[in-house]
């Protein structure tokens, strides 16, 4: 039994009048990959965006319930969202490097958080992050070229490097491979395997195979409800809920 990193308790989320999540309760283990699957519009992205309070950006979004990271309530009034997001990094569906150089993309986080004191520190962080994201060898000669000039898979790894540059505990990945080709996808999956030794990873994916390949635990969302969460092998071989069964066998989704 690993220790629990994140715990969600009776989470309800509303977009204006519309309720998007119903009483979601689950936990995630430290330094493991947890996958969230389900048909589109089922609330899995909404859920993951609650974990670093990205939903705060949307005016009409309202969150009820409790999410604890290491036992601290992240929706507590004295929680600084900037600090939270420093600890909980995020990688998005579509690679979104800033229109700056590769170096500046990775240096952005350390700079705003004042992590690196000297230029040499900053350089070291950038190189380490790029190496961890398995991108360094491909870009080491063009660190000052625009990040937007890379290929899709490289851009996504750049975004991962950006996320880990501030040394977070947790990395949230919101369908990180949906815009990528199979080869790039394979590289990212391989990378996740390396990263989980250091970070707790939560990945939202619409691909069941991907969930099966990378995760140790899997949660299945349907119509805003968490239907089932269990060890990945259990979910895929012997789910306890009929809806999970139907989904993984392709009856809907």
């Amino acid at each position: 039994m690993k220790s629990i990193k994140i715990k969600a308790d009776n989470l309800n989320v509303y977009y204006g009048e519309k309720q998007a999540l119903f009483d979601v309760s689950m936990y995630m283990e430290e330094k493991q990959v947890t996958a969230l699957i389900g048909p589109s519009g089922c609330g899995k992205s909404t859920f993951i965006r609650c974990l670093n309070r990205m939903n705060d950006v949307i005016d009409i979004c309202k969150v009820q319930g409790k999410i604890e990271i290491d036992g601290n309530d992240i929706y507590a009034p004295d929680m600084q969202v900037e600090q939270l997001r420093e600890r909980v990094g995020m990688v998005f569906q579509k690679p979104n490097p800033f229109p700056k150089s590769i170096f500046e993309n990775v240096a952005y986080g350390p700079r705003i958080h004042g992590i690196a004191e000297h230029k040499s520190d900053l350089e070291e962080i950038v190189v380490t992050s790029l190496k961890k994201a398995a991108l360094f060898d491909e870009v080491k000669d063009r660190l000052y070229d625009a990040g937007t000039g890379l290929s899709g898979g490289q851009q996504q790894r750049l975004c991962i490097a950006r996320a880990i540059s501030v040394n977070p505990d947790i990395i949230l990945m919101d369908e990180p491979c949906s815009a990528l080709d199979p080869i790039a996808t394979a590289r990212i999956e391989e990378l996740m395997g390396d990263l989980k030794t250091e970070y707790t990873i939560i990945i939202v994916t619409h691909s069941m195979q991907q969930a099966a390949r990378v995760s140790s635990r899997t949660g299945f969302f349907h119509l805003g409800k968490l239907v089932e969460v269990d060890k990945t092998e259990t979910i895929f071989s012997n789910p306890s809920d009929q809806r999970t069964q139907d989904y993984i066998t392709g009856r809907f989704g």
Partner: peptide, 12 residues
């Protein structure tokens, strides 16, 4: 402490 200071500065 330094980090908290820097965060306060940023928020200000």
């Amino acid at each position: 402490e330094q980090r908290i200071n820097s965060l306060n500065k940023r928020l200000n």
